Simulated assay, not measured.
Amino acid sequence: MSPTRPAPQSESAPTPPVAERPGSLRLSLRVFLLLCGLSVLLFALITWQVLADGPLLGVDERVSHALVHPDRWSELLADLGNGQIAVPLLALVAVYVSWRGHTDGAGRWWLPPLAACVLMALVPAIIVPLKEWTGRHGTPVMPPGGDYYPSGHTATAAIAYGSATLLLLPWLRSALARLALLTLCAVLVLGVSFGLVRRGYHWPLDVVASWLLCGPLLLPLGLSYRSRRQSSSRTPRC
């Protein structure tokens, strides 16, 4: 009697995507909140030094004197932080993401673009009163005045380019494309920051303070991106 052959197995059903661990979103939230708390603490420290004319300002001025060298390239980099450039770019990305979300039937497709626009509108509402309150004078190459801390151009670049990046990331399937977009965002923000300091438009601490201020402002969009990534990983695809 011949040995019994195993019955042919039917085609296996497609393997559903592996969902992220339930605690991953909570862990991300804790990390985000920790980083935001650290940013707020450092911003408060720098602001206190500006108001009290503390020793940190001496270090800041020495670094500025070593870096300042006005040239055409530094001015072009600084101009990337102008509202006339950064804000229209964010508006175009917001319109594109809204169209994609509406076309694909994504839930609450309007919320991330709206949040990005609200963040952009908050920049002058936050930066201008801080400038008037601190009243820090400009670098030696700038006209006298007291409205240089924190840097408005840096904040504009960080919020506009950072928000545009966070809006586009969920629509990029390739990890390489997402990495390229994040790198481009970092290069733009750092380029604007370097140009402002190199050109003598701002002290280095003015720029650093804007970085620290914009991190917590971008938190809602960052959490929104994380949440959308988690939802998409649980959605079966053909």
Rank of each mutant, 00 (worst) to 15 (best):
P140E: 15
A180V: 06
V128C: 04
V189T: 08
G107S: 11
L176S: 13
L172Q: 01
G145F: 09
V128K: 14
W171P: 02
P170N: 05
R108D: 11
E132M: 14
G105Q: 10
V141H: 09
W171I: 00
Y96C: 01
L122C: 15
H153Y: 05
L130I: 08
I127H: 06
V87E: 08
L176D: 07
G101W: 04
G135R: 08
L130V: 06
M142G: 03
A94T: 01
R136L: 07
G146S: 12
G152E: 10
L184K: 05
A155H: 12
L89M: 13
L167E: 00
A164G: 07
G135K: 09
A91V: 04
S98Y: 13
A125P: 01
T154R: 09
R100S: 11
A106P: 01
L179Q: 09
L90N: 00
L166Y: 14
R173I: 05
L90I: 00
H137Y: 12
G162T: 04
Y161V: 07
C117G: 13
T183V: 14
G107K: 14
L90D: 00
D147I: 02
L182N: 01
V141R: 11
A186S: 09
G191E: 03
V93Y: 00
H102Y: 12
A186M: 07
A116W: 00
L168H: 06
H153L: 08
A157C: 09
W171F: 09
T156E: 11
A175V: 12
L181N: 09
I127G: 02
V141A: 15
S98F: 13
P112Q: 00
H137K: 04
G162F: 11
G152I: 15
A157E: 11
I126G: 02
A164T: 03
H137D: 10
W99P: 11
L92V: 07
P88I: 05
F194R: 05
S174F: 03
A121K: 01
W110H: 15
A91K: 07
I85W: 13
S174Q: 12
S98V: 04
P129A: 07
I85H: 10
A157H: 06
V192P: 09
L114K: 02
W133Q: 07
G135S: 14
R178F: 03
Y148P: 02
A91P: 08
V97L: 02
L114C: 13
H153M: 06
G146M: 09
G105T: 10
H102R: 15
L168R: 12
A125K: 02
V93T: 10
F194E: 05
A160S: 12
P124A: 03
A115I: 12
W110T: 14
G145Q: 07
W109A: 06
T165N: 05
H137C: 03
V97T: 03
W133R: 11
G135I: 05
A115V: 10
V95P: 06
S163A: 14
V123G: 07
P150T: 02
V118L: 15
G152D: 14
R100Q: 14
H137T: 04
